[in-house]
Design a protein around this nucleic acid. Structure first.
Lengths: 195, 195
DNA sequence: TGATTTGCAGAATGATCATTCTGAAAATCA
DNA sequence: TGATTTTCAGAATGATCATTCTGCAAATCA
């Protein structure tokens, strides 16, 4: 018997690298070191196991990412930390590029209503967290656009980077893009010199 | 017998709304009004039909989108036209939210090497086009970041918007996000008033 | 130790799918 | 009109998959 967290970590790995449809119960069962019968006993069906994997992934991978937003330092510094962590997550393991939610769940949600609800909730959660941080550092924002829209914009950039990582982009490129996004929102030094 | 373009348009529709795995040959055949035998005769296999659908989609949906970049007017105006067109494409038909390439091909590429190559090529094509436009309007850019990185950033925003549309976001929200991205790159009026 | 329960690996089931095949209807041509 | 080719709808095939079932081996307990 393996600790349930370790089993779930294995499931996360399999779903993340092979996708929802691509991950067969037989391989999941083997990699989790959990017999099929116990697997169905514990999670009900494949969808239930996937949702549990999403929750585990959010806990272990996304929570630390949200942590980087602090507030710890300046808005620019915190956002830079956030994008650095996101791009590192997306490129850390060549077997699992991108993001389980932005890439795998987003796909599966296309044909499964329950997964679509889950996806919408996860997307909204990130946007809410970003919005909160932007409001906390509102005086450091030079953009006249309202923070709610900027939060969706930053979340969209993050998701676009995840897609790009899935399609094969190295960490350096993605990191540069993330930093460029932050620099646009919070001009690095002199507010504007060109003109 | 139906004109091949109309048949392909039907295939695009089916793949776009149901995904690569989700679209069964039986349904494709029916919606294309093309018997299975003729379908295999014409496209080889499901993967070939999908690639042909991608090409048709690029011709009919993405080419006009790239057209908006001109150069027609100012960089800001052209980029705004581009994002407006992209968000309209992503939300025009509730049956087919998002983008066939960013959402459907991006998923299928996860487990299929040939489709991965196709995805990388399509992604790069958009980035090249954006880069070209940014360079043409370089004097209108206030950001110190190099245009190549900004091009990947803009492409990432567009893809993030496509994902968000797939997860259910209305056109108004996405349009506002797209415009916010353009405003960050090309400040709308006074370069900076705050601070 | 012997009886009873639990845990497990893989076989059995039933469904779905891509791909190929078939036989009849429709169209073409002499 | 009669012979020949084309076209097609759906059946046949073989593979894969999620889910359930089965029979045995290990563990537990008296």
């Amino acid at each position: 018997m393996v600790a349930p967290q370790q089993a779930l970590d294995a499931a996360v790995q399999v779903f993340w690298s092979e996708g929802y449809d691509g991950a067969s119960i037989t391989r999941l069962s083997r990699r989790m070191r959990l017999p099929k019968a116990s697997l169905y006993q514990a999670y009900g069906d494949k969808e239930g196991l996937f949702l549990a994997s999403i929750a585990r992934y959010a806990e272990t991978r996304l929570a630390p990412l949200a942590q980087t937003l602090g507030p710890h330092g300046s808005l620019a510094a915190d956002l830079r930390a956030f994008f650095d962590a996101a791009t590192r997550l997306a490129t850390a393991d060549p077997a699992t590029p991108g993001c389980l939610i932005s890439c795998v769940l987003a796909d599966a949600a296309g044909t499964n209503p329950r997964l679509r609800v889950e996806l919408a909730a996860r997307f909204t959660a990130l946007e809410t967290r970003l919005h909160q941080r932007l409001v906390a550092g509102q005086d450091e924002l030079t953009s006249p656009t309202d923070p709610a829209t900027l939060a969706v914009l930053l979340a969209s950039v993050a998701r676009g980077l995840m897609l790009r990582a899935r399609a094969g982009a190295d960490h350096a490129t993605l990191q540069a893009v993330g930093r460029a996004a932050v620099d646009l929102l919070c001009p690095p030094d002199k507010p504007t010199t060109a003109r």
